[in-house]
Design a protein around this nucleic acid. Structure first.
Length: 317
DNA sequence: ATCTACACCTGACCGC
DNA sequence: TGCGGTCAGGTGTAGA
């Protein structure tokens, strides 16, 4: 479940069921899914067993669990390309790609009643993972505490070390457009690459980058510094809007790989205008009576989709 | 500092 | 049926 809307669907699903629950038993089924936990699977299990969940936080595509009375560390989760976090009855059989199994005490089921539940990290490709990361106070460039991160009991905002390099995402109330704009002006790179750079703006992946660029009528290779401020604003607004709309529809899923904590798919794929639409007419051009067919082009080892008419290639690239 | 290339994986699909 | 190639919502790191 890769990009921001899909990760936020998971975050909300977890927050609705596991706040106050205790990690009774933690079992690493496949050590490769905790490879970013350098002290190893046994240490991972030992640190987490007995912790009580008090919050489920997210920045960009990173999720983390915070624990009661614990300002030392958080459990960080990244879904990578194929990760799922499922909440299931303990009786149900193990999934084919089950990687980490956590028994929860005090979680609540669909009807809001307390029920035994397992939290299951399932990951086909193992690009995602779970790991414990130390919590650090958040500072801005001036060394002042930043608002908006998880507040500790001492009032200091804290963030997992592993997430500290990730920029705020466009759905974050503290997202700083001015900072992103300065990054745009300070680089010679193309705009799509910058959109995918999680340290510049987070949560945007290949789908929502293409959707935002389509909405802002920008070619992926347009140099970021050549984009006028008003268009930059439209682009960020487009990214925010498309991700908010996708979230409202449960995210984008083309197959059973991208599901919420109950294993259900979202249906924003029906609303995509650009991503995966090669050979389809551009919906915007169609409104003006023009038929321009969307194209797929190689981009950084993957694919980019655009309308050849309203997202023209800039001169000299 | 800033770029690409590659590594990390499984599975679906296509042409032969 | 099988084999090799291609492709897939991502990120961290090692080299140039």
């Amino acid at each position: 479940m890769p990009e921001l809307p899909e990760v936020e669907v998971v975050r909300r699903g977890l927050a609705g069921h596991i706040l106050g629950a205790v990690l009774e038993r933690v079992q690493v089924v496949d050590g490769r899914s905790v490879r970013r936990h350098e002290a190893g699977p046994v240490d991972f299990e030992r640190l987490l067993t007995g912790q009580r969940i008090i919050d489920v936080a997210r920045r960009g595509k990173y999720l983390w669990l915070l624990f009661e009375g614990n300002e030392e560390f958080a459990l960080v989760i990244h879904l990578g390309m194929s990760g799922q976090v499922l909440l299931k009855n303990p009786e149900l059989p193990a999934e084919k790609h089950l990687k980490v199994l956590i028994d929860l005490a005090g979680a609540t089921d669909e009807s809001g009643r307390e029920a035994p539940l397992t939290l299951r990290f399932v990951d086909q490709r193992i690009f995602g993972g779970m790991f414990v990361s130390p919590l650090l106070p958040v500072h801005n460039a001036a060394g002042e505490p930043m608002p908006g991160a998880s507040a500790s009991a001492l009032g200091l905002p804290l963030i997992p070390q592993a997430v500290a390099h990730i920029a705020r995402d466009p759905l974050d109330p503290h997202f700083d457009f001015g900072q992103f704009r300065r990054t745009m002006l300070g680089t010679s790179t193309g705009i799509k690459k910058l959109l995918l750079d999680q340290s510049a703006i987070s949560g945007v992946g290949n789908i929502y980058a293409d959707e935002a660029l389509w909405r802002a009528r920008l070619h992926y290779a347009k140099p970021a510094k050549s984009i006028p401020a008003s268009t930059a604003r439209e682009l960020v607004d487009a990214a925010r809007t498309v991700m908010r709309d996708a979230l409202a529809q449960g995210g984008t899923s083309f197959d059973a790989l991208y599901v919420n904590v109950n294993g259900e798919s979202g249906y924003f794929d029906r609303s995509l205008n650009a991503y995966g639409q090669a050979g389809q007419p551009c919906p915007r051009c169609l409104e003006t009576g023009r038929t321009s067919l969307m194209v797929r082009e190689p981009f950084g080892g993957r694919s980019s989709y655009r309308c050849p008419h309203c997202q023209r290639k800039p001169r000299g690239v």
